[in-house]
């Protein structure tokens, strides 16, 4: 099976330095687990992040240099000859970061897509079985027709980083013809400012209640009431976010 992993610009959110986003590392892992040759594909000039992607197991990274719509460029590049599998992270890191690219690409190529993929299984009759990761450790088995696009779950197993691979990866710059430009995103851009999340979603009774040396039975009652109020007990979906 021939797999291609889509690589974004790759910026670390804390340091702003080049880094392969966690989801793309997971995507490389999935691609490797499917077996066969795995290459990376990036629209734009190659950077340190693309080399590092090699460290996770890509043998080759093609950087497509051409102006315009990245989806159109990718679609054109991927159609001749098409790979069996295109993998991506949940969302890019360092650009628009909307997570739209794989969806737009799937729409354009007319391929099916599944997101949140934790593991890749076997291929049978042109169908690939995959496991989808849901919150709270829940899992869902699915089958998808090849060729397809898969978005890796951020928690899918990551392959180890190997410097020897990173230094040997072949990063190739491919000049491609320009695609029609995409409309510029409007609005004002500025440095990110962390905003507190809504309050009032906190638990019951306010914070910092201290109960000193209660009788065990009393302690048990208070604990249980508190856990109940937090919604941690009762139904199997005690995990619901409904507070």
């Amino acid at each position: 099976m021939r797999g291609v992993v889509l690589l974004s610009g790759g910026i670390d959110p804390v340091s702003g330095r080049p880094a392969v986003p966690r989801g793309e590392v997971a995507a490389i892992g999935l691609a490797l687990s499917a077996g066969g040759a795995v290459g990376g594909l990036h629209v734009g000039e190659g950077s340190v992040a693309q080399r590092q992607a090699g460290g996770y197991g890509l043998e080759r990274v093609d950087c497509l240099r051409g102006g315009g719509d990245a989806v159109a460029i990718l679609a054109a590049h991927l159609s001749a000859p098409p790979p069996d599998l295109v993998l991506a992270g949940s969302r890019a890191c360092g650009g628009e970061d909307s997570g739209m690219l794989p969806y737009l690409l799937a729409e354009r190529l007319g391929w099916p897509l599944l997101a949140g993929v934790m593991a890749i299984g076997a291929v049978a009759d042109g169908w690939l079985s995959v496991t989808i990761g849901l919150p709270l450790g829940a899992r869902q088995e699915a089958r998808i027709r090849l060729p397809c696009i898969l978005c890796a779950h951020d928690a899918a197993p990551a392959p180890p980083f190997v410097f020897d691979r990173a230094r040997r990866v072949v990063v190739r710059t491919v000049d491609v013809s320009d695609a029609p430009p995409v409309p510029v995103v409007e609005g004002v851009e500025r440095p990110y400012r962390a905003r507190p999340r809504l309050i009032g979603s906190a638990g019951p009774g306010g914070g910092g209640t201290v109960l000193e040396n209660p009788e065990p039975a009393e302690a048990a009652r208070v604990l249980l009431a508190h856990l109940r109020a937090l919604g941690m007990l009762g139904s199997s979906e005690g995990a619901s976010i409904d507070a």
């Binding site: 670390d12 804390v14 340091s15 330095r17 080049p18 880094a19 590092q52 460290g55 392959p159 180890p160 980083f161 190997v162 410097f163 020897d164 691979r165």
Partner: peptide, 23 residues
Amino acid sequence: TLMLGAVRDGAAQALQASRERAE
């Protein structure tokens, strides 16, 4: 580490952070 990437999990995290965050 360099040829096989075979380090312990905690060490792998620390090395990744060193690489990507210089810390």
